[in-house]
Design a protein around this nucleic acid. Structure first.
Lengths: 104, 104
DNA sequence: TAGCTATATAGCAATTTAGCTATATGACTA
DNA sequence: TAGTCATATAGCTAAATTGCTATATAGCTA
C-alpha cells in the first residue's frame, strides 16, 4: 500500500481488452491505418475517430478509454486542425514495465 | 483481442492494492512473518491466516483475494496439517513480466 | 461571425468487483 | 469417532466499471 498507488493506476488502466487493443493498434500506426492528411501517423499519432472505429464501441465510450490511457500516461494526445491524434508514450510505457519488473 | 485474453487475466489479478500487498509480503516471508511451526516459510509459504491479518479484511475476503492470485497462477497453495500456505510462483510471475514486456 | 464537425462530458442502466456475515467443508487431534 | 479449528463457499449490499444516448464544447472553415 505504498508504491502500489502508482502501480495500481497503471495496472487498472491496462486491464481492459479495449485498452490493450488501443495500445496494440498504436504500436504500428502505418501498418494499421491508412495515410493521414492533417496529422503525421508517426509524429502525431492516430486520429481518435479511426481508433474509435476499430474499437467497435460508441464514440463516447472510446473517448473514455482513451482518457483512461491518457490519464495513466501511456498515450499522448495532440490537437491539430480540430482533430485529436493519439500516440504511445514509449518512455512512460517503458518506465511502467521497469516498475512492474522490479516491484512485483 | 487475441493475445489479450491471457494478459488481461493477469493484469486484472494484479490491479488491486490488496493483491499487490499479498505479493509484496510473500516476497520476503522470513522478514515479514515470525517463524512457522507446521510449514516452512520458504518452501511451503506463508499461512493464509497470517496473510489475512496483514490484509486488514475479513477472512472470506482475504480468501477470495488469494484465490484470484492463485487462479491467475501467481501464487501456489500448499496444504499441510489443516493449514494452507501460500508462496509466490516466481517462474509464472517472470513469464508474465516477459509477456508484459513483449506485448504491451 | 456562423455554421459545422470532432471530441468531450453528463447522466443513466447493466455488469463486475469487493466487502461483509453466516455457514459449509475438510482435515487434524484427542 | 467427535470435536475443533482453518479455510472455502453462499449469498447479500455497496461501490466501481463499462456501455449507451443525449448534449455540450471547442476549434476549423467559409
Amino acid at each position: 500500500m505504498t508504491i502500489h498507488i502508482d502501480i495500481e493506476i497503471g495496472l487498472k488502466a491496462l486491464a481492459s481488452d479495449k485498452r490493450l487493443l488501443l495500445l496494440e493498434l498504436l504500436k504500428d500506426p502505418v501498418g494499421n491505418f491508412p495515410p493521414q492528411v492533417d496529422g503525421d501517423l508517426l509524429e502525431d499519432g492516430v486520429c481518435a475517430n479511426w481508433l474509435t472505429e476499430r474499437l467497435d464501441v460508441s464514440q463516447p465510450t472510446a473517448a473514455r478509454h482513451l482518457k483512461v490511457l491518457s490519464d495513466a500516461g501511456f498515450i499522448i494526445p495532440t490537437r491539430k486542425k480540430g482533430w485529436v491524434f493519439y500516440r504511445r508514450d514509449e518512455a512512460a510505457i517503458n518506465r511502467f514495465k521497469t516498475v512492474i519488473r522490479e516491484e512485483i
